[in-house]
């Protein structure tokens, strides 16, 4: 602006004002150089931060480029929330979904919607460096991606995957050390259970019916955490031959296979099964589990989420299946 007005003025009064114009031009030049220097200085200060990124490979095999320093994390998956807190990055979580109820401090964080109805606007407002999602959030991932917000899918499918997911989350938030020690503890817990049930012969391993739901009657298939937890606890899953993850089964399947133990999920003091309820089902009063009253509840969240508490779930399941071995 200034230089514009100067040139315009100098066109008319060039001979008289030459000296003053020159000094003004010099002043402007000096100011411009100073500004450029200042800007350049600024650039030099921020340079190590802005371009420095890291590449993360998530549970779906996607390569996601993230800033090297992760300061703000949003998690819309209860499993991912548990993992972030377990690896010691919980203080950087700025928002979670409504179902993220563990650890307790996650419950006090701002909510960004439910499981299927994630509120994209709420996430954008939090300006996170990364959003942890599960595989059902495909649409959310696309929406957030178009707004320049990066998502990492955290969806482990078995215990081995849980370790991998924990390491991935730990690495991106610079917490690898703590993650490794948590994983070592988990492996120790599972190994301790394995040591106690190792000598039970295959034909004496107790048959476990895990009742996922009562109406319709649902069980757990061979590709689920529940199945893996039962096997790691030294039991046999009643429906290890099912084609689907949570097959609907008839009452007759349970009667014909006659489980030794019935385990059902408890939802924070919700529905509970009892010998009375089970005996009410047609033909179930003669079941071994009912006659010997081996009907037990287990926290639904620790068995269905592939989180850091899965080792705890194995220990608990083993205690329910073989109470005499774990006193």
């Amino acid at each position: 602006m200034d230089s514009m007005s100067i040139t315009r003025t100098s066109r008319h009064r060039y001979p008289q004002l030459q000296g003053r114009a020159r000094s003004l031009l010099w002043l402007v030049l000096v100011l411009l150089v100073a500004l450029a220097l200042a800007a350049g200085g600024c650039q030099r200060v921020t340079e190590p931060e802005v371009p420095a990124t890291q590449t993360v490979i998530d549970s779906m095999g996607r390569q996601v480029e993230l800033p090297k320093q992760i300061a703000k994390i949003v998690s819309v998956s209860p499993t991912a929330t548990e993992i972030v807190f377990a690896v010691g990055a919980g203080d950087r979580v700025v928002g979670v979904d409504e179902y993220s109820n563990y650890p307790p401090e996650a419950q006090d964080l701002p909510k960004v919607g439910g499981y299927l109805d994630v509120n994209v606007e709420a996430i954008v407002a939090l300006q996170p460096d990364v959003v942890l999602v599960s595989t059902i959030h495909r649409e959310t991932v696309e929406q957030l991606g178009s707004l320049g917000i990066k998502c990492v899918v955290v969806e482990p499918r078995n215990v081995e995957d849980v370790y991998t997911a924990m390491l991935t989350v730990a690495q991106m938030s610079g917490q690898s050390g703590q993650a490794q020690s948590v994983i070592d503890q988990m492996k120790e817990t599972i190994a301790a259970v394995a040591a106690k049930v190792r000598d039970i012969p295959a034909d004496e391993r107790r048959l476990v019916f895990y009742e996922v739901w009562d109406d319709p009657l649902m069980s757990a298939g061979p590709e689920t955490y529940i199945h893996e937890i039962i096997v790691l606890s030294g039991g046999r899953n009643l429906t290890e031959d099912a084609d689907t993850d949570y097959p609907i089964i008839g009452y007759e399947v349970v009667v014909a296979r006659d489980p030794h133990v019935v385990i059902y999920p408890t939802y924070h003091g919700g529905i509970g099964l009892s010998a009375e309820t089970l005996s009410d089902r047609p033909g179930w009063s003669g079941l071994t589990a009912v006659r010997e009253n081996r009907i037990q509840g287990i926290d639904a969240d620790i068995v269905s989420r592939g989180g850091p508490r899965i080792a705890e779930a194995v220990a608990e399941m083993a205690r329910l299946i073989y109470p005499e071995l774990f006193r």
Binding site: P216, T239, D241, A242, D243, T244, P247, I249, G250, V253
Partner: peptide, 8 residues
């Protein structure tokens, strides 16, 4: 058809 699973 899917035994031991059932279809609705």
């Amino acid at each position: 058809v899917l035994a031991p699973s059932e279809l609705p």
